[in-house]
Amino acid sequence: MDNPFGFKHMVALLVLVLCIVFFSSLLIGSTRLDIRNILVPGSVDSIIFLSIRLPRTVAAILAGIAFSLSGLLVQSASGNDLASPNIIGMNSGAGFAVLVFLAFFPHLFGLLPLVAFIGGIAAVSLVFLISSLVGRYDSSGSLILAGIAVNALFNAFISALSSLNPDVLSSYSAFSIGGFSSVQSSQLYVPGAVIIITASACFFMAEQMNILKLGDEIASSMGYCPRYIRIVLVALSALLASSAVTFSGLLGFVGLVTPHLASLLSGGESRKTMVMTIISGPLLVLLADLLSRTIIMPSELPAGVFMAIIGVPFFIFLLIRRARRW
């Protein structure tokens, strides 16, 4: 393992940092909250805490878990370390479906995660289909290029919809880059439950993810069916990412950056990598959100801006490292 602390120590350290960032996220913002006042029912601090800070912080944690785990699953399924829900079109597919649904059926708010899932899975199916027509699904070139094409298509649809029907999306740019500034607790119940249940289910797939690393020939000889494992992983990945899209928008790069970071810290075994992903994903998103609302206080930027600032150089680093390796 690359890190000198060992897995358990690294987990403990990251959990500690996550706790610190979690409490900072609850207390720091354009209005500094006093813990004693928060506990007084009906006080301004209490209202800000319960209606703004707590939903926002919980949303950032849920989105961090969902996008980063989704990235890990899709990288494992495709055998491609450049894949992520954002890059292969999952987020924009889910985002487009959400906007269409909000435009035509705004009263059926509770069905949003299902609609987002259908959009996400449709987009990723299209990407895998195009990719398999022009090359293998684990060929980085064809998967990424197909993802870029599908992403562009759905982003164009999103732009068209937001231009034609401005009421649907009061802040299109904030949605497209992702953030938590207008998250309400009512938006989190259903997607939050879906994310927690799906994330728990992912641990049952760790053994299969380990087997996929061996290549399809050895996996088959061990009695597994790699094709079915991939389908399940992509479905779980779409469920996670699309649930998060419903409240966070198209938050990018966390799904790309976190699995690599987690793999580096865990040594690569899938169950350990999942644990690291579930801790470091929320940590990165919370940090991005905290930066987004403190760096130019009292104004704020969408959290997606800071995720991109962290994610883009990392993505370029991966491309360079991959090019050098081959």
Binding site: L214, G267, G268, E269
Partner: peptide, 13 residues
């Protein structure tokens, strides 16, 4: 397959 992990981590699976 090419894997980016230690042999010990790989075989621990």
């Amino acid at each position: 397959p090419q894997l980016r992990m230690h042999v010990s981590d790989f075989l621990s699976m």
